[in-house]
Design a protein around this nucleic acid. Structure first.
Lengths: 143, 143
DNA sequence: CTAAGTGCAAACACTTTGCACTTAA
DNA sequence: TTAAGTGCAAAGTGTTTGCACTTAG
């Protein structure tokens, strides 16, 4: 689990020369605090409830900056909005196809990396592993 | 490797009550013949070169039908068009971030499925595993 | 003070849809 | 013959961009 705190994200952006605006702080606060994997729109709605004025465009800008600085990860889905993950270490995402919740599953995977590198001469730079299915909450409330 | 032939796809659609139009045949022919993972647009351009008249909408319709019937798989990417995979058995996709090529890597994975089911009570219905990196061709021609 | 950032609305890219025309069975 | 399928163009979705206004440093 490699996850940056609010402080670390702010520090990293400042060091890279980015200004600390109310909007950026609000987005960072939101993404670093929540343990679910919110979408840009969810973050937008949440920030709007508070005092800070913000637009969706700014949220996308800020999230893209964080992704670019490798402080968070972007998860894309065809059937829905992109979601953002503070866990930047490769891990398994358990995605509920009923309620859309995403949780992390951390496990050391004997992920066949070496075998791929040798057999295919493919240079792995990143990976993405998802299990789709029904989460505990949803399977319990089916009656 | 579980991969349906052109014949099997045609049979499955006919049995499900679908009509066999020139357009559907052309799409099925294209997807079942090619071993790469074409996008709707690529299939469109390819079919246009031949005698069959077709539109992009029809290609999407047909591909969606095939996906729905579980005869092919859809791979979605935020940064590009969806790609379609005839290998419907769960497997690893090796995706080249330089040229966009996608190849399959078949391997029996000790994929932690059991552990997830037990530890998280998550009912797995499908999964998606991707390794992103540089393919053989691209790494050779880098000089 | 001034370059960086914000925020609206318009643009974008891919995919889906409404509907008149065509066609497989 | 006729319901299913096609194909255009228009709508829809999530995301990005252009540009005048605002603001952090």
């Amino acid at each position: 689990m490699r996850k940056y705190s609010k402080k670390q994200m702010v520090k990293a952006l400042k060091e890279a020369g980015y200004r600390m605006t109310q909007q950026r702080l609000a987005v960072i606060d939101m993404i670093a605090t929540r343990s679910d994997h919110p979408s840009a729109r969810q973050i937008y709605l949440e920030i709007q409830k508070r005092e800070t004025s913000i637009s969706l465009a700014t949220i996308y800008n800020t999230l893209n900056t964080l992704v670019h600085k490798k402080l968070i990860k972007e998860l894309d889905f065809e059937y829905d909005e992109n979601r953002y993950d503070t866990n930047v270490k490769p891990h398994i995402n358990l995605i509920c196809t009923r309620c859309g919740s995403i949780s992390d599953f951390n496990l050391d995977l004997p992920m066949a990396k070496d075998e791929i590198t040798v057999r295919e001469e493919f240079i792995i730079t990143d990976y993405r592993i998802e299990y789709h299915g029904i989460c505990t909450q949803c399977s319990r409330k089916k009656e």
